[in-house]
Simulated assay, not measured.
Amino acid sequence: MFSLIRQKYFALVVSFIVVITFWVLYQISTYSAYGLLGILGALFANATGAGGGIIFIPAFQQLGITAEQSVATSFAIQCFGMTTGSVMWLTHAKKCRIENWSLLPTLSFICIPFSILGIWSVYGLGLSTPGSLSYLFAYFSIFIGLGLLYTGIKKIQSDKSNLMPKEITVISVKDKVALVLLSYVGGIITAWLSVGVGEIIAFYLIYRGYRVTLAIAVAVVLSAFSVWAGIGYHIYLDNVYWNVLLFGGPGAVIGGILAKKLATSIPVFQLKMFFASWVFIAGTIELLIN
């Protein structure tokens, strides 16, 4: 009798293991590509300052994921990738002996509260997007890309004129006011698109003459705090696509680790132009597809 009971339990355990194995294999075959997407998104996001949504949103839209799920899942994946990237950049800042890297904490603390306020304003007041997710994302990306290309052209002109601008080492009152306003507006856009505040702040800091890698680091840290401030809202509404996050999240961690090495090994001007070109091309493709 006890032998029969043991056989039944053994059969149940084996059946359970077989079912779980097939379920895991199915999940891997269906969603494993999102791991690569997470790596790419975090790699570009943490190497350029642009949020991972620059890659995630167009990809999710083409795969038929709803706009709400796209934004929520992009927020969730960025919680992994941008947090990892922030740790990498902060570690780099501690080791860096260049004077203006000491501005990283100050710039971050100026921007973070107002970005979060912008995000919570959208959720608390129920501010809906002024257009479809695809079009708003496309136009925003094109605008930021063109702005950064413009700053690159200005640098080429200054180089030809032998006018090498000094990198800023002190934050002016004008910059503080501008960063507060831009962070709030960027937070609103981020709530709609899952990207926005990082790109806007990175663009402004680069345009004003701050070190490019410093601007990227500030954008990454700011984006990390911003997505964490908004993810609870999306979890509450149950909009996160958990199966995608299961693979995209760990992939984003890998991308976040690799990104800092990429950003600090590429010459400043090339990094700046890469950032601008990538954002502009992503927006243009999204606009043409839709």
Rank of each mutant, 00 (worst) to 15 (best):
L4Q: 14
W23C: 08
V24L: 01
L25Q: 01
Y31Q: 10
Y34D: 06
G35Y: 04
G38L: 11
G41H: 00
A45V: 07
A45W: 00
T48C: 00
G51F: 07
G52P: 09
I55L: 12
A59K: 02
F60Q: 01
T73M: 09
S74N: 11
F75N: 13
A76C: 09
I77N: 06
V87Q: 07
L90F: 07
H92V: 14
K94G: 12
C96P: 04
N100V: 08
S102T: 13
L107H: 09
P113F: 02
P113D: 01
I116G: 00
L117E: 02
I119R: 07
W120N: 15
G124F: 15
L125K: 14
G126M: 11
S128A: 15
S128G: 08
L133H: 10
L133K: 06
L136R: 11
I156K: 09
D159F: 10
N162I: 11
V177I: 14
V177R: 06
L179C: 04
S183F: 07
V185M: 09
G186E: 10
G187T: 04
T190P: 06
A191V: 02
L193T: 02
G196Q: 04
A202Q: 00
Y204Q: 09
R208M: 04
R211P: 00
T213S: 15
S223A: 00
F225P: 08
S226Y: 04
A229C: 04
A229Y: 03
Y233H: 15
H234E: 07
D238R: 12
G248H: 09
G249H: 01
I254R: 08
K260I: 13
I266V: 15
V268H: 10
K272F: 08
K272C: 07
A276C: 14
F280L: 13
T284P: 04
I285K: 14
I289F: 08
N290T: 15
